[in-house]
Amino acid sequence: MALLQLRKLVKSYVDPEGQRSVVVDVAGFEMNAGEHVALSGESGTGKTTLLHMIAGIVRPDSGSVEFDGQDLSQLGESGRDRVRATGMGTIFQTFNLLQGFTCLENVLLGMHFGHGANRDRARTLLSRVGLESRLHHYPRQLSTGQQQRVAVARALAGKPKLVLADEPTGNLDHANSLEALRLIREVCGENNASLLLVSHDREVLSRFDRVQQLGEINRAAH
């Protein structure tokens, strides 16, 4: 059974001129539990909106997002919050770490709204990503690569079934980018999490067995 199924998913926005424009129009897409899939697409092809709909942050105009047997489009906002808190983790391009919280606290926050904070697990994850000596550092005290690793640990903290990664290597140099990708895939694998990663970096895409061109599934991208 597929972990994630998108059916006839449409999202449009009204631009400042009052014109309605469709940014996502996906007829169908599926991925299985444990699968690592890369979505390839250039800027402006609706990648972020699509990921937001999968995460339940944005509600589609029509169509369905079925995650782990639940149709998110049928759930209320708090239901979608709950699914996001317990079943999904997100790695952002700009990491989106909370600056007032230490590394450990950022990872604990990744669990807090789901199954509850577990300090031991947070420490273990941070050790796994090589930050055992940076637990009580604030994001501003870390290098870009280290911040990325905190974001990876946070995304995995709540034992998600699916990790959404939006251009996770976009802010890293080539060497760090490949290292970060290796780490993300390894940690997802160790935690039995599926990975849906969006990137337009050919080097990154070449590391995936399954690469889905966003232009092929999103008719609005043409």
Binding site: A55, E77, D81, N96, L98, L109, F113, G114
Partner: peptide, 16 residues
């Protein structure tokens, strides 16, 4: 706003 959005993205409810 950004911090609130991050918390919401992590699963915090509006009521939270």
């Amino acid at each position: 706003k950004r911090d609130i959005a991050i918390l919401r993205a992590l699963g915090a409810r509006r009521l939270t």
